[in-house]
Amino acid sequence: MPILEPTYKPPFYFRNGFVSTVYSGLIRRVSIKQERERITLKDGDFLDLDWSFSKEKTDKLIILLHGLEGNGQRPYMTGTAKLFNKNGIDAVSVNFRGCSGEDNLNYYSYHSGATEDLEAVIEHAISVKKYSKIYLKGISLGANIILKYLGERNNVPSQVNAAIAVSVPCYLTGSAKALHTPKNKLYHDRFLKHLVDKLKVKQNRFPELLTDDALDSIKTLTDFDNVYTAKAHGFEDALDYYVRCSSLQFLPNIKTPSLIINALNDSFLSPECYPVKEAKSNSNLYLEMPDYGGHAGFIDKKNVYYNEKRALEFTKSIDLK
């Protein structure tokens, strides 16, 4: 598809990518009533799902996936859920394994390419909850999972009508390098602290799988992926994980209408994360590249973000086809 022309025009003081990213991650608040459901996965582990509902009964559902070390209460999740609920669509915010406030049961957890849990949630929504129209929306890591899920399978359920991927690091190698640059040190160190703190909890439960020396060797996010992510999830090392799990390679095979919104001033993204060639050659792939927005920081009027409005507009446009 042709590249879409963005209409996003934030207030002047939010045109700075750092400001919009930090404000959206640390200051924004969205109030919404959620109901938690725990589902058991095929491997015996669990996922916690946070549901919010339209006032009217509906057969439509949006499934929301968060970013690295996020959860179902992050404003970029609840903001989308609230907007869709107001427009007659139920929402379920998925907490990845270990992200709902309780460590998951297994040593392995979640990562940028772990699409099996999304598949389980979709199956649950169709077979148990009986939704007949499903939309997917992910932020950052969650967006990469969605695009990879759609592109690596030829049997995506027909109930999945559309997808929206926001601030998606679809080329993980490039994004990993970007996160290790001085301009992203604040984000890098914050992510690393959360991840290592959680890994210490796992070490207490699985001391035979993680030695003190291995834990002490983790100084960067790449170290974390070498020591834990790769070994726990069957990859050779961090680079192998990045290469195999980047959604960029799966974009040509996507058959579900999918909208990618990546801001040009997103410091987490490398040049490869703007898949112009792939969008132009796949009629199901739509790409918007606003000048502003930082990383998931598309601040707009009345506390409803631009990417949330575009997600709703996109799903409605697909439904009309």
Rank of each mutant, 00 (worst) to 15 (best):
230 A>Q: 06
210 L>M: 11
238 A>I: 04
305 Y>D: 14
27 I>Q: 06
175 S>V: 07
80 T>M: 14
39 I>V: 14
304 V>I: 15
299 I>Q: 05
176 A>H: 06
100 S>C: 12
58 T>C: 13
118 L>C: 12
226 N>Q: 09
230 A>R: 11
246 S>T: 03
175 S>T: 15
174 G>W: 04
222 T>N: 12
275 P>F: 05
241 Y>D: 05
142 G>T: 02
149 Y>K: 05
309 K>E: 13
203 Q>V: 03
23 Y>R: 05
266 D>C: 08
250 F>A: 09
175 S>F: 02
103 D>T: 12
109 S>D: 08
5 E>N: 13
39 I>S: 08
143 A>E: 02
93 S>F: 01
29 R>W: 01
89 I>C: 14
84 F>W: 06
205 R>Y: 02
212 D>L: 12
170 C>L: 15
257 P>Q: 08
272 E>L: 14
314 F>N: 10
96 F>T: 07
307 N>S: 15
301 K>M: 06
122 I>F: 07
107 Y>W: 15
230 A>S: 14
155 N>V: 01
301 K>G: 00
162 A>L: 02
182 P>L: 10
238 A>C: 12
266 D>Q: 05
149 Y>H: 10
282 N>H: 13
284 N>Q: 14
43 D>E: 09
131 Y>P: 10
149 Y>N: 04
312 L>G: 07
271 P>H: 08
235 F>Q: 09
204 N>Q: 15
244 R>D: 10
111 H>G: 06
67 G>K: 10
220 T>S: 15
83 L>A: 13
41 L>H: 08
154 N>W: 00
42 K>C: 02
80 T>A: 15
96 F>P: 03
34 Q>E: 11
171 Y>H: 15
197 D>R: 13
237 D>K: 03
277 K>H: 11
264 L>H: 01
172 L>D: 02
10 P>D: 10
154 N>C: 00
114 A>C: 11
